[in-house]
Design a protein around this nucleic acid. Structure first.
Lengths: 271, 271
DNA sequence: TGTACGGCCTCCCCTTGGTGGAGAGTCAAG
DNA sequence: CTTGACTCTCCACCAAGGGGAGGCCGTACA
């Protein structure tokens, strides 16, 4: 017979835990002194304690352990319980796999944004450059600029895993339109994927006049004025669709500070 | 301004949860009617709610979320929080990986035991057969039979991952010894591994007289008597070490019923 | 103006698997 | 007899809310 302290040292279960298991009927001491209320454990309790500990190490709920203790006298009887617990554990496993993947994506995106921001921080002047060809997935709509957000949401749902760059928008109108602008929000993607309602195609390489706009979207007009003026002074003829690349916009979690948003305007030049 | 019900429908957070977040200071309604105590939310609350929800989906603790809301105005400020959370999630991930692996091992072992039991259930008679060569990891000791348990424990710790069969014991004494028997508990293993204090070597193929004993270990003597008698009647000369294979013994979790234990006695014949 | 119904309020208890502490009783040694 | 170590019961606490009771509020309809 062991006192609770001795039994605790032997089994590695804390005294509190032993009292708790007693209360829950999992591990009833062999003898309880009616006068003092002291618990006394015997070697058979030791077996039970070992079993409970082994099952708790596998994170079986106490309720299941109670059932198992009542029903099973042999490892053989355990198999279906083990299988069920395995399923539960596997579910948690995939759950945490998904979460880590998601968080990894967030971190990666954040890194990319940081790099892009560092790269474009300096030049807020009009420049000319050759824009590489790129594979995009887009949804072309007629509507307002403010509808873009929802469309980006849809796109992220459909091709989210394959996104390989900053969100963009293609503008098919030569002029500003309020209500039924012809817009195509899109994402660069890494490989060919099928998705319903999504247009998947390469954008051709093209020489562009570009300008990185810093600030909220409602001040984009000023940057358009600047870049247009430049194109006109050079006598360039422009092509459609024009592009906007959202180098840094509202984040995935926080909206961030609109005065730090960076948007690259790309106006393709007719060659 | 939205009532709590409207806000709940918009954000997808339950009313209970909204009240709870209010209590915890995470999401304080824009206005509280002093007369009725009704909570009223405004669009800025909506942003905060979105952030909280996104972070909760990544299983950030509420306390961390509170810190983040207080400190971060931008996704950029989030990165180290994200990294920390990623570590925590990854820890859980490997934790559950280990658990599922362990439980898989248990299930596999159980299957093997079941098959072995089914195979050997019928023949409790003395038979002769050629025992295949086998790679074993063992620890040879001088002591009592009852010390085997601990040694099996040590072995399991050192080569546990590579065990590929039933536990065995080799007996190097020609006679029964009480206190300083020359015994080698061992496990069949699948591939060559190094482990301190463990002897790793192949057992040669050998022709044996064998008998499957059913029952607790303290009745093994009777089976030894039977098999010895048989060997003598055939005029066989026996070789050392003799072997015991524990086809079914105490389980990993439960001790099981000793009357169902199956132990195969193998006595090598000198050829 | 009464009332019915839905929405909202606070307050309390419940979940899992224990942990921590307060205050009081018990045991053995010196 | 005292001291110190052990043990007892009872209560509160953790995370992140869920469930429900009992009562107030607001509005629509008769």
């Amino acid at each position: 017979m062991f006192t609770i302290g001795e039994f605790s040292r032997i089994t590695g279960l804390t005294i509190k835990t032993l009292r708790f298991y007693h209360e829950r009927g999992l591990l009833t001491p062999a003898f309880i002194d009616p006068g003092s209320g002291y618990r006394h454990y015997d070697p058979r309790n030791l077996d039970t304690a070992r079993v409970i500990k082994a099952l708790r190490d596998l994170e079986f709920p106490l309720e299941d352990i109670a059932t198992i203790l009542a029903e099973c006298g042999d490892d053989e009887d355990l198999i279906e319980h083990l299988a069920r617990q395995r399923r539960d554990l596997a579910a948690k496993l995939t759950h945490y796999q998904n979460l880590t993947r998601q968080i990894d994506q967030l971190i990666t995106q954040q890194r990319e944004i940081r790099e892009a921001t560092a790269m474009h921080q300096q030049d807020h002047n009009v420049t000319e450059r050759d824009v590489e060809p790129i594979l995009i997935a887009g949804i072309r709509i007629k509507g307002r600029y403010s509808d873009c957000g929802k469309v980006f949401g849809q796109l992220a749902k459909k091709v989210g895993r394959h996104i390989g760059g900053k969100a963009m928008c293609l503008y098919y109108d030569g002029e500003y339109k309020e209500d039924d602008a012809d817009i195509e929000p899109c994402f660069p993607i890494r490989k060919e994927v099928e998705a319903e309602g999504v247009s998947l195609r390469p954008l051709p390489p093209v020489r562009c006049v570009t300008l990185v706009h810093q600030g909220p979207y409602d001040t984009l007009g000023r940057s358009y004025a600047t870049i247009m003026e430049y194109a006109k002074s050079k006598g360039y003829q422009l092509e459609l669709p024009t592009r906007e690349v959202y180098l840094k916009g509202p984040g995935m979690i926080f909206k961030g500070n609109p005065r730090k948003y960076l948007t690259e305007i790309q106006l393709p030049i007719k060659s």
